[in-house]
């Protein structure tokens, strides 16, 4: 009896345990499902926008849509229209709708040169009006590796063509590098000959210069002798000149003192004499005896130099 009773209690405990486990498992499953739903945005408020492009290349459903590098939504659908155009629908969180202006555009970018493609919504310059829900935005593709390669090719190809032309010109046998080198070689030969000739002439000039220098040295020797003789005689001559100059200075100093006053005196005396004579001439009764000068008449003389007899 006691065994039966013990067995019943164990079974009940097992049942309670099993029940608790099942309840817990169900709760975890429900939580997981709720998380997935929340994660999938089932309960999130969103707004759809779309754009049209020629190709769906690098665009896939669920692809991230970003604004300024932040994920704000995803591609909701990619569909092909009857005219061959591709319509791409994006689902954007309503919280981020304030960044999407009516002139915003969508750009497909690569993360790095070979990274995954993302769609970036670039707001337009007019911030005063936002894009309406379901609005169709403009689309463009950023330059990717292919565009970069094309750009590089566009720039490299003309350069390569120029290099080809230059190479061709250099290789021209008449006017190219070989001919130029040949001419340079000829010029170098001519220059060598010229230098050799110049050397000969310089040697000749050097000999002449040596002769001239020799003559100049002789002349300088003579000059030195003359200067020595002059040096011997010059001091005496200078002394005598100095003495003469002293005398002249003394005479000049005396003259400076005496001559101007003498001249002034002489001039004053002459002026006085003129005044006296003039006054005397004009004073009564002398003026009555002095004839005033009258217009002169020169005696006729048709041959003042006597050239009639013995001319020029």
């Amino acid at each position: 009896m006691s065994l039966l009773i013990q067995h019943d209690s164990d079974t009940a405990a097992l049942r309670r345990g099993t029940r608790r486990f099942l309840i817990f498992a169900a709760l975890v499953t429900l939580a997981l499902i709720a998380a997935i739903v929340v994660r999938q945005g089932v309960f999130r408020q969103t707004t759809n926008y779309s754009f049209v492009t020629d190709s769906a290349q690098d665009i896939t459903k669920g692809q991230a849509v970003k604004i300024a590098g932040f994920r704000v939504g995803a591609v909701d659908g990619v569909s092909l229209k009857d005219d061959g155009q591709v319509v791409v629908t994006m689902e954007i969180d309503a919280d981020h709708m304030r960044f999407i202006t009516h002139d915003a555009r969508v750009e497909l970018r690569k993360e790095g040169l070979v990274g995954s493609a993302t769609l970036e919504i670039l707001p337009g310059p007019d911030k005063s009006r936002l894009a309406a829900a379901q609005a169709r935005l403009t689309f463009s593709r950023a330059d990717g590796l292919t565009a970069l390669a094309n750009q590089v090719r566009d720039e490299i190809v003309p350069m390569l063509k120029d290099v080809k032309v230059i190479t061709g010109a250099l290789a021209d046998p008449k006017n190219g590098l070989p001919a130029t080198l040949a001419r340079i070689r000829d010029s170098a030969d001519t220059l060598n000959a010229l230098l050799a000739n110049g050397n000969q002439q310089v040697n000749g000039i050097g000999a002449a210069a040596t002769r001239v220098l020799g003559k100049a040295e002789e002349d300088l020797t003579h000059l030195g002798q003359t200067l020595e003789a002059t040096n011997k005689r010059l001091p005496d001559m200078l002394d005598r000149t100095q003495q003469v100059l002293k005398h002249v200075e003394q005479i000049t100093a005396e003259a400076e003192a005496s001559v101007p006053s003498a001249l002034r005196d002489g001039s004053a005396v002459a002026a006085d004499m003129r005044e006296i004579v003039s006054g005397a001439k004009q004073s009564w009764p002398i003026r009555n005896f002095v004839d005033a000068p009258a217009p002169a008449t020169l005696k006729a003389d048709s041959d003042p130099r006597g050239e009639a007899g013995r001319g020029r």
Partner: peptide, 30 residues
């Protein structure tokens, strides 16, 4: 003699200077 003679007219200074120069020139030419 001075009192008895008629007073002579006096020429203006420039005329007098010109006449003197001319008279002196004539004397020197002679």
């Amino acid at each position: 003699a001075g009192c008895g003679s008629t007073p002579k007219a006096v020429d203006p200074p420039r005329v007098k200077a010109a006449l003197e120069a001319e008279s002196d020139g004539a004397k020197r030419y002679g």
